[in-house]
């Protein structure tokens, strides 16, 4: 069964003025455990598609079903709660909370889920250890390198035990070593824990590691290739 089911999505910005068709009839299904990269040139609609999958934007027409639920019918608060419980986000600019330590950043989403302190601290430590930052628990983002911050962001995304992780250009600000380390880590989580990852990326290093590559051009899926 597909975790993400997109049916004939269209997205048009400024429909009454100068319409910009960001997505034109996109159909896509992503199953549990997939490691998918959405690629395409700038303006192809990949970020728009990612925003719609993440419930951050709504399609002009079409249907989006996440984990069996049509999310276009959710209220604002229910959408926020839905994201909190079902989707992990990794951003290009890491977007950690600067005044919280690595451990607290990972704990934060579990605070919102109202998990008890002991349980959330244990999980946060476990996740930070898994991303190789066991010795950086008390460091604030400003004390970490870009690669380390992105690892914390991945740990934070995993903390809520989401159905899948959406990563928008996660390696765009990282050097080669950090990129390789981050991809290794995410691939390992995908293989060992069956975590579903969906990336939008320009980065060939990410594309090379993806097991499915969906290429968007002018708001349409041009190709959808499985790499074994």
């Amino acid at each position: 069964m597909a975790i993400i089911e997109i049916n004939n999505i269209e997205k048009t910005y400024n429909p009454s003025k100068v319409p910009v068709h960001a997505l034109r009839g996109v159909d896509l299904q992503i199953k549990k455990g997939e490691f998918t990269a959405i690629v395409g040139p700038s303006g192809s609609g990949k970020t728009t598609l990612l925003n719609i999958i993440g419930g951050l934007d709504s399609p002009t027409t079409g249907q989006i079903i996440i984990n069996g639920q049509d999310i276009s019918k959710l209220s604002d608060n229910n959408m926020i709660d839905f994201r909190k419980e079902n989707i992990g986000f990794v951003f290009q600019a890491y977007n950690l909370i600067p005044v919280l330590t690595a451990l607290e950043n990972v704990e934060f989403i579990m605070v919102l889920q109202k998990k008890d302190k002991k349980a959330r601290q244990e999980r946060a430590k476990e996740l930070l250890t898994a991303v190789g930052l066991a010795d950086k628990l008390d460091k604030r983002p400003s004390e970490l390198s870009g690669g380390q911050q992105q690892r914390v962001a991945v740990a934070r995304a995993l903390a809520s035990k989401p159905a899948f992780i959406l990563a928008d250009e996660p390696t765009a600000n990282l050097d080669s070593t950090s990129t390789a380390g981050l991809l290794d880590m995410m691939a390992k989580m995908n293989e060992e824990e069956g975590m579903t990852f969906v990336f939008s990326t320009h980065d060939q290093r990410v594309i090379d590691r993806a097991r499915r590559v969906v290429t968007l051009v002018d708001g349409k899926i041009e190709s959808d290739i499985y790499n074994g």
Partner: peptide, 9 residues
């Protein structure tokens, strides 16, 4: 970012 990751308004 905070509303995206699940903090209510």
């Amino acid at each position: 970012v905070l509303t995206t990751i699940g903090l209510r308004r």
